[in-house]
Design a protein around this nucleic acid. Structure first.
Lengths: 337, 337
DNA sequence: GTTGATCTGAGGTGCGTACCTCAATTAAGC
DNA sequence: GCTTAATTGAGGTACGCACCTCAGATCAAC
């Protein structure tokens, strides 16, 4: 039989109350006693029964996902997965909710986060640009006892859930090079805004591979669409007009729908190797139809489940298996959709 | 507050004992009463608290993974993931164990499975060839009340956990075609044994794509290694001698180490596009060194966690979210390892 | 109406932990 | 040694459900 708290109390020569105080980090225990209990934990191999602990808490874990108010298909997909998780999670006493924050107004976003109280929420996964205001708000949340982790954005932070965007860019670069083979020419790189760290990282990774291993290719400075179809058409047409040897298109942003549409209309896409990011209804359809050649993807379901596992582990101050939590950089083509 | 069994009893106008009988499928309840309770469940949106239910069972779930006695690196990897899961699972009252079965002796395998009693085990994931003896043994296990699911092998069975091998082969075929570009020549396909259904499916998928879309390529009949380095060297050398235009090598089996080694020794691999299955220490190293170009993979951690989720859901007669349980066909290259 | 079988209710115990109160003990400062 | 504060123990209740017993109700067949 697995040792219980009762066994632990006996082994440590203390009462259940003290065991409880130590296990849950409550105050009013001498350092020496804490050490005694910890020794006993190791000695008898005690491990808290999380099932019983969760039940005894008398309330569900409540986790929030703070996501931008504006977003494309990929964000919709993530939100759908959060809601899906919520449905099955309730039976395991985990409730999840989506909180929208305004990524264009850092002050308002910080205020929204500031309003969250530990009474209503145990942890939060944040998908937001790293502005000083947000950073401050997060710091204050942690002080109030709310666990936080960066989600999809801000990979350099601790406990990040998401992919290594630099490696993702390198992956795209490798595929671009290999798919183009001996062909010589220009590659267009497109994103919503070059301000975003994700785009920067991806571009760095992409260039790293292409410049080193595919000297037959030349990558143009990144074009910006600002998510605007008109502007997308404009910059794309300009680039195609200016270079008659365009052979590849790398769509770096999460919103590939408009570039694909515009590319198709310009009748350019059929001759190009096109690589985009994130599986959405649009990129999936484009993969099937052959309009694009590969998609670099991170699984939204895994993202959500991993974030919840990590938040929960933090609440129970456990550690997690890093190997289990690394989000894969997936390569999708028509055949493995 | 979520409705509890008590609320359900009140809503259905029956006692807690009857609610328990219905929820857990015990005998001695009239059909009409069962219907009344089920109606009430829907009406008030009752959902069993799995945390409390698990605790009240007074014992952990015990799941087994039946895997072949002989196997290569990929099997080792899977077993390692099972043990890893076991360590974290115990805190959630899920115990897992590995059972070795002799895949060369179906009778002995069936006997091993036959010895398993519902007292000692709640469910089992089986990775074994589909012989009549095994099929019988599984049938009898289910009758005894042990849940079973096919694992990695036998994808056509219900509840299968693993990848669609035909699609995996098609994925390999597409990559082979794209990586070779305009090059013309012969492609070698290699496996341990063509008797295995996995190999057959992969070959079918591979051929489907290559024969249709890459007429510049010709795929030779599948070579068999029987897992023997000597034989591998022999058949590979023969094939390379017989065809001076070999441009690609497709290693279909799970054990790629020997073919990669032999190919390297024959000094052939550097000129070829090589695609293998399953990430292992060998294929990972070969990807990094450039000896192979891509690996088609299924994540062992996901395989194990998914199998456990499905077995547990079956024990609690719940349904699972199919979308969450589909094992991805992953494409690995050096950049997204 | 009786008998026997079938169904249902009432009530209990226990799982392993969280979280609470209050009294008792021990340590620390003077 | 005394006072005060810090530490510890004892005991309780609760979570939502599984699983048990036994008496009482209901039903069907005769």
């Amino acid at each position: 039989m697995r040792p219980t708290t009762k066994d632990l109390a006996k082994a440590a020569g203390v009462s259940l109350a003290t065991v409880d105080r130590v296990l849950n980090g409550r105050s009013g225990v001498r350092k020496k006693t804490i050490a005694t209990v910890n020794d006993a934990i190791k000695r008898i191999g005690f491990e808290r029964n999380q099932i019983a602990a969760t039940l005894a808490r008398q309330r569900a874990y409540r986790f929030a996902f703070a996501v931008p108010r504006s977003g494309g298909e990929f964000l919709d997909e993530i939100i759908e997965r959060i809601r899906e998780f919520d449905r099955v999670g309730r039976a395991e006493m985990i409730e999840t909710e989506v909180i929208r924050i305004d990524d264009r107004d850092p002050h308002e976003a910080a205020r929204t986060l500031g309003r969250l109280s530990p009474d209503k929420i145990d942890g939060i996964a944040i998908m937001a640009p790293e502005t000083p205001q947000i950073r401050d708000a997060l710091h204050r949340m942690r002080e109030r006892g709310i666990e936080t982790i960066p989600f999809v954005a801000n990979q350099q932070e601790d406990g990040f859930v998401g992919i290594d965007n630099r490696a993702a860019g390198a992956t795209a670069g490798r595929l671009m090079g290999r798919f183009l083979g001996q062909r010589q020419g220009t590659v267009i790189a497109l994103t919503e805004t070059t301000q975003s760290r994700d785009s920067l990282e991806r571009r760095l990774g992409f260039d790293g591979v292409v410049n080193r291993d595919y000297t037959n290719l030349r990558v143009l400075p990144t074009l910006e669409t600002h998510g605007d179809p008109g502007r997308t058409r404009h910059v794309l047409r300009n680039a195609l007009d200016a270079h008659d040897d365009v052979v590849g298109l790398y769509i770096m942003g999460a919103e590939a729908r408009t570039p694909i549409e515009v590319g198709g209309q310009l009748n350019a896409i059929n001759r190009l190797v096109v690589i985009a990011h994130e599986r959405t209804l649009s990129t999936e359809a484009a993969l099937r139809s052959g309009e694009i050649d590969a998609v670099i993807h991170q699984d939204p379901g895994h993202l959500v489940r991993s974030a919840v596992r990590i938040l929960r582990a933090k609440c129970e101050n456990r550690s997690t298996l890093a190997s289990q939590e690394r989000i894969r950089i997936e390569i999708l083509i028509a055949e493995n959709l």
